[in-house]
Design a protein around this nucleic acid. Structure first.
Length: 289
DNA sequence: GGCCAGGAGAAAA
DNA sequence: TTTTCTCATGGC
């Protein structure tokens, strides 16, 4: 991997296991979207970025060396060897030969914990386009405006403080339905200090999950997504309807309970569970007919 | 018009 | 403790 600063951006040459479309379309991030063919745009950790494949690598802009080192290198998890992870998963089960070839450029982003909490509360019994729309509306209504280089306005994810003092009807107007009260109450719990999300990383995976489960609108599956995408506990294995389909088709039988799937994943994939889950999710949703 | 979407929470068994 | 019902909303 070679990093070069040019044209008000960063060019990453000789990068492997990186596919922009797969990274942003595999259901882990909701605020990056394709604005032109092959060009994705979004806001993360309070910064604005465009990403695209170019002839000899991946180009990030607008971005200087400081922003790359402080934000984006970590955000895209560039320090992790995904080739090694894929080889290990294939050794564990040959199913992953197809799944990792299909999603060969997937990476688990390192996202903002609060953004993941808000996003995945909204995700419950919902679909991805609507989740994206709701988050965007919440950001426009309650977030802070940030001027981006092309002159348009982008908005940050609304803070817990702002949402805790918002009217339920205004939150619901963003299309979140009955989840309005979950959002407000969870925001209140974080503002009041009942749950300190800054201390979650000091906890064991079990303690972290127990803590997240006390938040309103956060059950087992949502907690696992927050663990995986917001705090990067790679032992987390979120089981949604798609992963349940994949597991019952390729590994266990049809009538397995969520607990059985969890223990199966933990036993087979261990600390690679989060990676395994993401290759599986992307493959079952977009790869298999 | 019923079913589904990256389910959670409360009631009922 | 486990199972069942209800909860907005839009797309098909």
């Amino acid at each position: 991997m070679i990093i070069k600063s040019q044209n008000e951006g960063i060019l990453i040459e000789d990068i492997s296991d990186f596919n922009v479309a797969q990274i942003f379309d595999c259901g882990q991030a909701f605020r990056f979207k394709e604005v032109e063919k092959g060009i994705y745009e979004g806001v993360a950790h309070g910064a604005y970025l465009k990403v695209s494949h170019v002839e000899n690598g991946v180009f990030l802009w607008p971005c200087d060396i400081d922003a790359f080192e402080n934000i984006w290198c970590n955000y895209f998890d560039l320090g992790t060897d995904y080739g090694n992870i894929k080889r290990t998963l294939i050794e564990i089960d040959p199913f992953f030969k197809r799944a990792t070839e299909f999603g060969s450029g997937i990476r688990i982003l390192r996202q903002d914990p609060w953004e993941m909490i808000l996003s995945f509360i909204i995700s419950a019994n919902n679909n991805i386009p609507r989740i994206q729309g709701s988050i965007e509306k919440l950001s426009e209504m309650f977030g802070e405006p940030a001027l981006v280089p092309n002159g348009t306005l982008k908005y940050s994810i609304p803070s817990p403080e702002r949402l805790s003092s918002a009217e339920l009807s205004d939150i619901r107007a963003c299309g979140v339905g009955y989840r309005d009260k979950y959002i407000k109450k969870t925001a209140e719990m974080i503002v009041s200090g009942v749950v300190d999300i800054n201390k979650v990383l000091q906890l064991t995976p079990y303690e972290a999950e127990e803590t997240l489960l006390t938040l309103s609108g956060v059950g087992k599956k949502v907690a696992d997504c927050i663990m995986l995408f917001g705090f990067n506990y790679m032992s987390a294995f979120p089981v949604d309807t798609w992963v349940k389909k994949a597991i019952s088709k390729h590994f266990l039988d049809d009538s397995v309970s969520l607990n059985e799937i969890q223990s199966f994943a933990h036993g087979h994939f261990g600390n690679l569970s989060g990676y395994a889950q993401q290759y599986m999710f992307y493959y079952i949703r977009e790869g298999e007919s």
